[in-house]
Every structure is written in structure tokens, then in C-alpha cells.
């Protein structure tokens, strides 16, 4: 995973709540067995509407999504994170994320930063007044700033550390292989096994 320290880019406002993972990527795109190439699948159904925010000329090339509450609800499909990244997003700002989606984002290097809904609404106004305005998301300082606007965001300490270092979770866990083996020796014999 690539390290994430600070990102500056333009943003798209998404005026929706409960953006479930079936909207982020519909099930028909989950038939693919690759980890990349999902940019066409992102919000596939909403993108059929020419007025959808990501179709509008002023929001081309955005890398930050500013969403209403409860982003990423529903399915555990990590394809939702891959589709956002393949489309070009590095950051999603929202007042509440669903747990599994947020966990998946942290694994893949997509930053999900929590800011209050009031700040989301301020950002919507700023971005809609000038869609070309660059927004900076600083993971080191946990701050979002654009022009005069600045606010702190919440991110889990451990996820932040892994993102800053660009670390692979599996590699970290495998350092504990001995303890895992020790634990396995003491598992009760009644537990099921397919061996």
C-alpha cells in the first residue's frame, strides 16, 4: 500500500445520506475477479443521469468526495473502495461511515475522514461556489483546509499510523506467528474442523 500523508485536490459534493455500497458499486460488477478496473462501475446507476454530480463538467478530475451521513452502509464488498480509488478518489469526507466500509478503506489506502455534518454543509457551499478550489487533507495534522475554512477530522490512531507508513497488515501480523502457533496448541478439541 502507498503511504498517505497529505493530499490536495478538488472535491465533489454528494447530497445524499445512506449511500449504500450497492449504489457505490452495483452487484453486477462484482463478477470480475481482478482488483482494478472498476472505474466504470462507480455509482453506475446514478451516473446514467447526465445531471449526476460526477457527470458535470465542473467536477471532472475530482479526488475528494464530500458526502451526506452514513456513507458505505450495507455489503462488505471491498470493490466499493476499489471503484472509488480507480475513479480517482483519495479521500471521502462524511459525518458517519459504516464500519465495514471504513475498515476496508483503511486497508486499501482510501482515507475516510469524519467531520461534523455542519462542516460537510460548509464544504458543500464552498465547493459549489468554486468547484476548482483545491482542498487539502492533512493526515499528519488531521486537518481539512480550504481558503479560510479549516476543521479537524477524526480517524482511528492505528489506521492513521498504517496509512502514514504505508504498512501491510498481514506483514505486521505475521511477526506474531509464534504466538499464533502457541494459541493454536490450546484450542479446545471439541471445536469443528474440516481436516
Amino acid at each position: 500500500m502507498d503511504a498517505f500523508t497529505i493530499h490536495t485536490g478538488t472535491a465533489a459534493p454528494l447530497h445524499r445520506s445512506n449511500v449504500d455500497t450497492d449504489q457505490i458499486i452495483p452487484a453486477e460488477y462484482l463478477k470480475r475477479i481482478t482488483r482494478h478496473g472498476f472505474e466504470d462501475a462507480l455509482f453506475a446507476s446514478w451516473r446514467k443521469d447526465p445531471d449526476f454530480v460526477l457527470n458535470r463538467p465542473e467536477y471532472q478530475g475530482v479526488s475528494i468526495l464530500v458526502s451526506g451521513p452514513d456513507f458505505g452502509t450495507g455489503s462488505s464488498r471491498e470493490h466499493a473502495v476499489w471503484a472509488l480509488q480507480d475513479f480517482g478518489f483519495r479521500v471521502v469526507l462524511c459525518s458517519r461511515f459504516a464500519d465495514i466500509f471504513r475498515g476496508n478503506s483503511g486497508k486499501g489506502g482510501l482515507l475516510t475522514a469524519v467531520i461534523p455534518q455542519s462542516a460537510i454543509e460548509e464544504l458543500w457551499e464552498i465547493v459549489e461556489a468554486d468547484p476548482s478550489i483545491p482542498i487539502t487533507v492533512d493526515l499528519q495534522e488531521r486537518k481539512v483546509h480550504v481558503g479560510e475554512f479549516m476543521c479537524d477530522f477524526e480517524v482511528d490512531d492505528y489506521v492513521r499510523w498504517r496509512l502514514l507508513e504505508g504498512l501491510d497488515d498481514i506483514g505486521i501480523t505475521l511477526e506474531h506467528s509464534d504466538v499464533i502457533s502457541e494459541f493454536e496448541k490450546n484450542r479446545p478439541s471439541f471445536l469443528p474442523s474440516l481436516g
Binding site: 462488505s76 470493490h79 475498515g103 492505528y158 497488515d169 498481514i170 501480523t173 505475521l174 506467528s177 493454536e184
Partner: peptide, 16 residues
């Protein structure tokens, strides 16, 4: 769990 965690469990039989 997501697919990254699926891989993690496959490799380590554990999850942080």
C-alpha cells in the same frame, strides 16, 4: 469482512 481481511485470515487465521 472485506477482501483484504479475507486474505489476512487466509494467511494468519487471525484479525487485528
Amino acid at each position: 469482512i472485506g477482501t483484504s481481511e479475507v486474505e489476512h485470515v487466509m494467511a494468519t487465521q487471525s484479525l487485528p
